[in-house]
């Protein structure tokens, strides 16, 4: 970049994406805590994988949502490092879907924990 943007727009946008990822990790921690503190169920859904009960699936879903959003943040940070192109609708949609998936996981974790 030859001339830095006077408003540091790309940097601010990159930081906003990273803050969003950190907020998502906070939700993750609570969902993982719910799995770790739950009573270990005797019957596993998949044989040979202890801990993979319904709460374990919730924890796994939360991890998937994190990986998806982290990939989006990585791609977008690279784009903003090179230039100041607008985000593609697909990136925005994928991050929305990751958060909505995490919302569904949170609801499942609450319902299972009660």
């Amino acid at each position: 970049m030859e001339v830095r943007d006077p408003g540091l727009q790309p940097e601010r946008t990159t930081l906003a994406w990273r803050r969003t990822l950190i907020s998502l990790v906070v939700v993750d921690l609570f969902i993982w805590r719910s799995w770790l503190t739950s009573e270990p169920s005797t019957g596993n859904l998949v044989a040979g994988l202890p801990g993979l009960d319904y709460q374990g699936i919730c924890a796994l879903m939360a991890a998937v949502a994190t990986i998806v959003l982290a990939s989006v943040v990585w791609v977008r940070s690279r784009q903003l490092h090179i230039g100041n192109a607008a985000a593609s609708a697909r990136l925005v949609l994928v991050s929305t879907l990751a958060v909505m998936g995490l919302g569904a996981t949170a609801i499942a974790a609450i319902a299972l924990g009660g």
Binding site: S23, V26, V27, F30, I31, R33, S34, T37, V99, L102, G103, A106, A109, I110, G113, G114
Partner: peptide, 9 residues
């Protein structure tokens, strides 16, 4: 979401 799960736990 964090608030909901945190209150529950």
């Amino acid at each position: 979401l964090a608030g909901a799960v945190a209150v529950d736990q």
